[in-house]
């Protein structure tokens, strides 16, 4: 049986959107699929050694605001914080980010860095988009070891024959 292949475009740089490409890629690789992720636009910083992705409640109206500590009933409360508040209060995004990280840790979810390491260990190819690197001023040395570099045509050449193609 020929190896299944999966091509993902990762174009988002917020913490919540950093998970799906790495989760699906590591899972697919564990299922013996050949996987390539093309990081472009705001996805590029996910290839830096230190990942500083944040989540912004103001830009995510459906995001539940829950506390990852205290009694169960307290943790179940979805705090009705208006975006007029979350969008202007200094440090709100940082607070929401640390709450999300804590919540994910409590639930046994790996960090983005851990998921990325697993992807590399399983042979997932992480491709940095050359054009957006130039636009945003990234250099090859800014990214973790193992990252490759290519343009849209090189990625589409792989994606054209891929069994699964996803844009995130």
């Amino acid at each position: 049986m020929a190896k299944k292949t999966m091509a993902i475009i990762a174009a988002q740089g917020s913490l919540d959107w950093a998970y799906p490409p790495f989760i699906l890629a590591s899972t697919a690789a564990a299922m013996d699929m050949e996987v390539k992720i093309f990081f472009t636009f705001y996805g590029l910083p996910l290839l830096k050694p230190k990942i500083t992705a944040k989540v912004t409640p103001a830009a995510n109206p459906a995001m539940p605001m829950k506390m990852p500590f205290g009694p169960k009933a307290f943790q179940a409360i979805d705090w009705p914080i208006p975006h007029a508040v979350s969008g202007v209060v200094p440090g709100f995004d940082s607070m929401a980010t640390s709450l999300m990280k804590k919540q994910f840790k409590n639930k046994g979810v790996a960090t983005i860095t851990e998921l990325r390491e697993m992807c590399l260990a399983l042979g997932v190819e992480l491709i940095a988009c050359q054009m957006t690197m130039d636009v945003f001023g990234f250099e090859e040395k800014d990214f973790v070891e193992g990252v490759t570099f290519a343009g849209a045509a090189a990625f589409l050449d792989f994606a054209a024959d891929a069994d699964i193609q996803l844009f995130m």
């Binding site: 899972t27 564990a30 046994g108 979810v109 790996a110």
Partner: peptide, 14 residues
Amino acid sequence: SGMSCPLPVVKSKM
């Protein structure tokens, strides 16, 4: 135990 998706599958594969 205690691990969420995709860790059980990835760890089992490894």
